[in-house]
Structures are given as C-alpha cells and as structure tokens.
Amino acid sequence: MIFVIIIAGAMFAAGALCAVYRIIRGPSILDRALAADVLLAIAICALGAEMALTRHTDTLVVMLVLALFAVVGSISIARYMAGQDAS
C-alpha cells in the first residue's frame, strides 16, 4: 500500500505542478482560470485519495464545499472579462 501512496502522490504532485506552470505562463487570463480549475480538481482528488488510503472521512465536507463553490471563480472571470483584455 505504501507503493500506491508514493506513486499516486507523485502523479498528483506532477499534475498540480503542471497546472501551476500554466497559471504562471498562461498567455491569457482564461488559461489561468482554467489551470486554477484543474489545480482545484486535482486537490479534490488528492483529498479523496488520502481519505480512502487512510480510512477516515474527516475531509469529506471539504470536498463537498469545494465541489459546490469551485464554479464561482471561473464563471466570474469568464463573465466579466472585457474584450480587450488579452492577458
């Protein structure tokens, strides 16, 4: 089981680092909003994986709240983005 923890943790971390790279480099603000969304999805998956591997349910509510409110940031960025905002 320790093998699974190491491999899955490395893959979650690599995906999150790729998303952070896109947040830093992203040519437009939409790329950044999308990469922040991906980072949040990976964080939710990592929380769930940690709960499943250690058999506790303490952060289940955190997952619920994140799934509920993840939508707010990206939608407000996309909705109020003016036409001339290139970056």
């Binding site: 089981m1 699974v4 893959m11 995906g15 999308l34 991906v38 990976i42």
Partner: peptide, 23 residues
C-alpha cells in the same frame, strides 16, 4: 484493497494527464 489501489492510481494518472495536456 487492490481495487482501491487501482482506482487511486487511475485518479493519479488522470491528474497527471490533465497536467500534461494543459501544458
């Protein structure tokens, strides 16, 4: 436990694939 390990590895692989794809 084997099924759980496979499912978590699948989730990790998909996260990695999303990271690579987004770059």
């Amino acid at each position: 436990e084997i099924v759980v390990a496979l499912l978590i590895l699948l989730a990790g692989f998909l996260s990695l694939a999303a990271g690579v794809g987004i770059i």
